[in-house]
Design a binder for these strands. Structure first.
Length: 209
DNA sequence: CAAACGATTTTCT
DNA sequence: GAAAATCGTTTGG
């Protein structure tokens, strides 16, 4: 399978540096996440995202501008990754957005495989394509080969980048709801900061309005 | 320095 | 549906 000159389809830094993280989370639906890790190129269509609005968002690791070694990448200029270990065994991949010092990020919760399916199956120790292959933030990262050491990495490549292949859903096919696993965030858990593509099989089964 | 805790997934009953 | 798996980060003493 050939990838036709993707260079001019890579989302530029200007896409990420904008201020509205919720809008960016929405626009990322239908974009294509590409990784070239250990020399293996794989790609998937982004089907589910969640916005984390840093300083003012109780669900964010950077709530109240809490700055630690782990959260440091979120305070950088938009356009890099933020990957951290969750529950001791899952690597969760985020896209840092906004200008420098504004710790906004978008969690990529699910993708639908596009390129390199054979390698994706190997990474997940599976033999057939099913939604569980890459639906859910932990399994998505595993499918794409993303690990914690890929944090604070440029989204202009050469290991990670996002392409616009003109596959965005219609506005009517974008659904929003509450974020998953953030009950501790009190009233902010009710914010409609989760987005997914209507009817897509590759959306996590976790509950959310 | 010790202890608790996840932006979850998989397996077992 | 319940419970285990599993460990870096953060917080408290």
């Amino acid at each position: 399978m050939s990838i036709s000159n993707p260079s001019n389809r890579i989302l530029p830094p200007s896409f990420y540096i904008r201020a509205d993280v919720v809008q960016i989370a929405r626009e990322l639906l239908g974009m294509v996440l590409v990784t070239c890790i250990d020399g293996i190129l794989t790609a998937g269509l982004i089907t589910e995202t969640e916005a984390y609005a840093g300083a003012i968002d109780k669900a964010s690791h950077a709530y109240g501008n809490r700055r630690t070694a782990r959260t440091e990448p979120m305070f950088s200029k938009g356009g890099i990754s933020y990957v951290y270990l969750c529950y001791g065994l899952h690597h969760l991949f985020n896209i840092v957005t906004g200008p420098e010092h504004i710790p906004h990020a978008v969690l990529i919760r699910a993708i639908s495989p596009l390129d390199g399916l054979e390698d994706v199956l190997l990474r997940r120790n599976k033999t057939i394509l099913t939604p569980t292959l890459s639906s859910g933030p932990g399994s998505m990262s595993a499918a794409m080969g993303i690990k914690r050491n890929h944090t604070a990495m440029s989204l202009q490549g050469p290991l990670l980048w996002i392409e616009d292949r003109s596959l965005q859903p219609e506005d009517a096919d974008i659904i929003s709801g509450t974020r998953v696993g953030v009950a501790y965030a009190a009233e902010d858990a009710l914010l409609p900061f989760r987005f997914w593509i209507k009817g897509n099989a590759f959306v996590s089964k976790a509950k959310g309005l």
